[in-house]
């Protein structure tokens, strides 16, 4: 008990809740970006214009194959330092935005692939019927194909989001120092005697965040499945 209360006092110096909030907010922002970019990429992938299809294939393959750490290093050292791309006067804000962009782009390739598997569950007759009543390619994709593809790919999208939650710790690479992995590392350095408890605290935090996402995605994918 004594040991636990000492650990408690020690951890009070670290804003663990805030650290988790940083990762959750990175997940929300990067997840939204990934969904938007992934949807655009998959729409290009199925479009009748061959150059758009090629561009999308290239984009998805590049960002799926490069390690996330490399993407984040590129964001920090090339985009920010070399190209001087800046979004604000505050470099903390810049780091955060760079992390969101890097995470968003990287995960958009997985979202695009998840959506493509969802599109494969939509019979071609659906798009043909949509074109048959005079909808344009974009209308038919937006109103008929993608809504069904989303419902057919909730499980793989959920998996991508779960990977994203954990991958937000790589934001430390672009200099987001308030997030969990940086906080954990700082805590371990200052209190090596608590290393096991520190580790357990952060691991538990992630489990608490990830489990509901998994449960939600499983139940949504069942509830929203398109009946044919």
């Amino acid at each position: 008990m004594e040991y636990l209360s000492r650990y408690w006092t020690f951890m009070a110096k670290y804003n663990v809740l805030n650290a988790f909030w940083v990762n959750v907010s990175l997940t929300l922002a990067a997840g939204a970006l990934a969904l938007i970019l992934g949807t655009i990429a998959v729409t290009m992938r199925i479009s009748p214009v061959s150059s758009l299809r090629l561009a999308s294939t290239f984009y998805v393959n590049v960002f799926r194959d490069i390690p996330l750490t490399v993407v984040m290093v590129i964001m920090a050292s090339v985009v920010w330092m070399q190209l001087n791309v800046s979004f604000s006067n505050d470099f903390h804000t810049d780091f955060y935005i760079l992390a969101v962009i890097g995470l968003g782009i990287y995960h958009s390739s997985f979202i695009a692939e998840a959506l493509r598997s969802g599109i494969n569950t939509v019979p071609v007759g659906q798009a043909e019927a949509a074109r048959g009543i005079g909808l344009t390619f974009l209308q038919s994709t937006r109103i008929v194909v993608l809504p069904q593809a989303f419902r057919g790919s909730i499980a793989p999208i959920g998996n991508t989001i779960i990977a994203l939650i954990k991958n937000t710790t790589v934001a430390s690479v672009t200099g987001v120092s308030t997030e969990t992995s940086s906080t954990m590392q700082a805590a371990i350095e200052m209190g090596p005697q608590f290393i096991f408890l520190i580790f357990l605290t952060f691991a538990l935090g992630y489990v608490i965040i990830v489990i509901p996402v998994g449960v939600l995605s499983t139940s949504l994918s069942r509830r929203l499945a398109v009946k044919r």
Binding site: P123, G125, Q126, E128, A129, A130, R131, G132, I133, G134, L135, Q139, I143, V144, P147, Q148, R151, V226, K227, R228
Partner: peptide
């Protein structure tokens, strides 16, 4: 295509929409 109606062997109704929405989609969007 809006002027030429097509009826398929496998119906191809939009599976995620009500029958009413299936029928109104073309007139509303096209």
């Amino acid at each position: 295509r809006a002027d030429v109606g097509m009826v398929f062997q496998s119906f191809n109704l939009f599976a995620h929409m009500s029958i009413l929405d299936n029928v109104t989609l073309g007139p509303r969007k096209a």
